[in-house]
């Protein structure tokens, strides 16, 4: 092994400089969102692109929360995203487990078909989806969004879950079954606790995808009562003007659940839980 030399200060500075640049680059849009949200209406156009607003106000937040339908949109979005995430993760976990552990006829074909579903641009199938949803009378309902989102997220979520199950040694279930478990008990008591990071990651992924989905929500939902938040944001754009401040305030508020959700699941995302199970 080479002798470890003390890295030169220049290199260290360069490394942190690059990291700082990247962080600034990635976070700047967020900063801008917050800045506009806090800028009083009359200053938005007069101050132009000044980095720091001349004055700050919470007025935009007040209007969004109490004088718009934002809370209803928000509630709809939370309901749709949570239900989609839960349903998708449950189904994907079951399918992923089957793909990981069992051999059955048609498995390869099934995997291939699931891959194919991921190859089409969504735009192509909007019209048929609309016709189907209309035919079963689910237009303007949150149920239609949940069904469509769940269907579109299952393939990827299944592959994700399968890779997590693949990472858990088969010996563990077999040991549990020798210890007196049924296959289902082995799954519940041994495999599921070890898959929590995977479940967390899948939940988070699906939740965010459903939370920010616009295309289908726009097509399938017209009534104000069932609008989700991304569609609702568009209501801040009226025929003659755009309420930038309110729109940005709504955007900031929309970030809150995503952030909370990740704070909540991040402890399950910690890897390395299976270390020590088998020879390491």
């Amino acid at each position: 092994m080479a002798v470890l030399r003390k890295p030169s200060p220049l290199r260290v500075a360069g490394k942190y400089g690059a990291l700082a640049f990247y962080v600034a680059f990635a976070l700047f849009p967020l900063y801008w969102l917050l800045k506009i949200a806090l800028t009083p209406d009359q200053l938005i156009y007069s101050e132009g692109t000044k980095l720091w607003p001349g004055a700050a106000t919470l007025e935009n937040f007040r209007i969004v929360l109490f004088q718009s339908d934002f809370l209803a949109y928000f509630r709809n979005s939370v309901f749709v995203s949570l239900t989609t995430a839960a349903a998708t993760t449950l189904i994907a976990a079951g399918a992923g487990y089957a793909f990981s552990r069992f051999h059955f006829r048609g498995k390869r074909a099934l995997v291939a078909v699931m891959l194919v579903t991921q190859m089409f641009p969504l735009l192509m199938i909007i019209a048929p989806i609309y016709k189907i949803v209309a035919a079963i009378g689910l237009l303007n309902s949150l149920t239609s969004l949940i069904i469509v989102y769940t269907a579109f997220n299952i393939p990827f979520a299944t592959f994700l879950m399968q890779s997590f199950f693949d990472g858990i040694p088969k010996d563990l279930e077999e040991a549990a079954m020798m210890d007196g478990c049924t296959r289902f008990q082995a799954l519940r008591k041994v495999i599921v606790p070890l898959t929590l990071p995977g479940l967390g990651a899948t939940l988070g992924f699906v939740f965010t995808a459903a939370w920010s989905e616009l295309l289908f929500a726009l097509m399938l939902i017209n009534s104000n009562d069932t609008m989700t938040f991304p569609v609702g944001l568009l209501t801040f754009v009226s025929k003659f003007s755009v309420d930038w401040g309110q729109m940005m305030a709504a955007g900031v508020l929309a970030l809150v659940p995503s952030c909370l959700f990740f704070v909540f699941i991040q402890r399950y995302l910690v890897q390395g839980l299976t270390s020590g199970a088998v020879k390491g």
């Binding site: 040694p169 010996d171 563990l172 077999e174 040991a175 041994v190 299976t274 199970a277 088998v278």
Partner: peptide, 10 residues
């Protein structure tokens, strides 16, 4: 059964 990998529940 004692497994080659030990198969302890982590």
């Amino acid at each position: 059964m004692v497994f080659q990998s030990y198969a302890l529940y982590p």
